[in-house]
Design a protein around this nucleic acid. Structure first.
Lengths: 242, 242
DNA sequence: CGTAATCTTGACCAACGTCAATGTTCGTGG
DNA sequence: CCACGAACATTGACGTTGGTCAAGATTACG
C-alpha cells in the first residue's frame, strides 16, 4: 500500500501542494490501495458504501444504467480524479464506476470527510472549487447533448478528453491514448453506436480527428476546437486524493 | 434592504438553521437587494463580476448561448437557489441568468466567500453538500437528454420542477405555478419548440401532465414519475443565502 | 381595439436509430 | 506458428424521431 506521502500524483502541477499536516490527516484515512483489471465495477449504483476513491492509474467511467437497459456515461475519469464524495457526504451511490483499463484506486474512509473539512477548512474550499470547475464541464456537456449535431458532439467530447489528458502530461502534441470503444463514445454523447461511426468518418474525412489503435489523433487542436465550439477555460488546480 | 436576520427564506424547513454568528457574518457581506422585472439578465455570460446571488422571490433560468445563436437552459432557479458561486471562487461568469417572472435577488460580496469558509468550515461543508446534490440532478438531466425520448424527457423535466416547487411549499397536491414558455421548455430539454408541443399533447392525452394558464397540473405524480423514470431521492437540506 | 407575442397544427424533410451482413483485431489453445 | 473464436469495427438499406416551414388561433397588453 503506497503511503499518501509518496504518492506520485500529488507532484504534478495540476494539483495543489498540501501542508504536511493536511497530508498526514488524509493519510490516516487511507483504507485500501486497490488494483483491478479492465472492465471491473468498482462502485455499483445503489450500493451503500461510504468510501471515497481516487483513481491512481488507468481510466474509468462514471455511468448510469436506466431501467430500460440503456447506459449513460456521465464522465470519463482520469488519474487523479476523485469519485464517491457525493456518496460519502450524502448517502448511497447514485451511479456506477467501471474501469476501462487495468487501474489502481486509492480508497479513503469517506465517513471522516466531514470531520476532515471541519479541521482543515482550506481543504473544504479546494474541494468546493474543484466541484465548481467540474460543474462547468457538466454544463458544457449538457449543452452539447442538447444543442449540437452528431459530429460536433463527438468532436467536443474528443477534444475535452484530449485537453484533460494533456494537462496531466499524458498526451503529445497531437495524440493521446484513448481506451474507449465506439459503444462507450456512443453512450457518452447520446448517440447510437452506428451513428458514432458515421460521425467519426466525417471527422476523419475533414482531418479533424481520428481514432487509431488505442489512440486519439487530433492533427490541429485549434481547428477542432473551433469546429466543436470548445473553449479552453482556465482551470482550477485540483485537489488530489480528495 | 431586508437584513439577512429577517429573511423569510431561512425559516423554511428546506434550509438548515444557522448559528447567529454565521448569520451575522453573512449579513455583513450583503451588498444589495435587487428587484427586477421578468426577462431581465441578472448575470451575463462572460462578465467579470464576483457577486453571489440568492434568488429571493420569483423564477429564473441559468442558460448558455452558443455561437450559432441557440440557447441551452442549464437549470431553473427557484426561490432560495444560489447562483454565481462558481464565478466568485473561479473568476468570470460562464453562463447567463435571466428572470422568468418579476424577481428579487439578494446579492452578497463573493470575494469574501473564501474567507467566510475559512472562518466557518461548517458552512463550506454545507455548500459542498448542496453542490453534490445538484450534481446528482445534473447527472440525471444529462441522462435524460442522452437516453430518453421526447415525451419522457419532458415528463421528467416537469416532475423534477414540480417536486422542487413542492418541497418549498409552493405547490398543491397536483398543481404548481409554471412560468416557462414552450420555447423555454424546448431549450431546457434539447428539442424544438414544435416538437415540445407534440410531446406535451401526448402527455395530455395520457393524462400524465398538462400546462394550463401559468400552471403545471400533474393528476397523478407517482404515475408520471413511473412513466418518466423519475426517482425521488432523499434530498439534502440546502444552504440558504449561500 | 389593435398589435405583438405566443400557442397550436399540418405538411414535409433531415438526422438519427435499427437491422443485418461482413471485415478486422486480438487472445487462446493446439 | 497457426487455427479458431469472440469481441469489436465498419458499412449499407431502411424505418422512426424529431426539425423546419408556414399558416392560423389565442392571449397579453398598451
Amino acid at each position: 500500500m503506497i503511503p499518501c506521502e509518496a504518492c506520485g500524483l500529488r507532484r504534478k502541477r495540476l494539483f495543489r501542494p498540501m501542508a504536511p499536516q493536511e497530508l498526514g490527516r488524509i493519510a490516516s484515512m487511507k483504507r485500501d490501495h486497490l488494483v483491478v483489471p479492465a472492465g471491473t465495477d468498482v462502485i455499483r449504483q445503489g450500493e451503500r458504501g461510504r468510501a471515497v476513491f481516487t483513481l491512481y492509474a488507468g481510466w474509468a467511467i462514471r455511468y448510469l444504467r436506466l431501467p430500460n437497459g440503456s447506459r449513460q456515461i456521465l464522465d470519463v475519469l482520469l488519474p487523479g480524479d476523485t469519485v464517491g464524495l457525493g456518496s460519502a457526504l450524502l448517502g448511497g451511490h447514485s451511479h456506477s464506476v467501471q474501469t476501462l483499463t487495468p487501474a489502481a484506486f486509492c480508497a479513503l474512509d469517506g465517513s471522516q470527510v466531514a470531520a476532515l473539512i471541519a479541521e482543515y477548512p482550506a481543504l473544504g474550499l479546494d474541494m468546493l472549487r474543484t466541484r465548481l470547475d467540474e460543474k462547468h464541464r457538466a454544463d458544457m456537456r449538457l449543452t452539447m447533448l442538447g444543442r449540437m449535431g452528431a459530429a460536433e458532439r463527438i468532436g467536443y467530447f474528443l477534444i475535452e478528453i484530449y485537453e484533460r489528458v494533456r494537462r496531466r502530461g499524458l498526451a503529445t502534441e497531437s495524440t493521446c491514448p484513448f481506451p474507449l470503444r465506439r459503444t462507450d463514445v456512443a453512450d457518452a454523447v447520446g448517440l447510437s453506436r452506428v451513428h458514432v461511426m458515421r460521425a467519426l468518418q466525417e471527422l476523419r474525412l475533414e482531418t479533424l480527428a481520428h481514432l487509431h489503435g488505442g489512440d486519439l489523433i487530433i492533427p490541429d487542436v485549434a481547428r477542432l476546437a473551433g469546429y466543436a465550439g470548445y473553449a479552453t477555460a482556465a482551470r482550477v488546480k485540483r485537489r488530489a486524493l480528495l
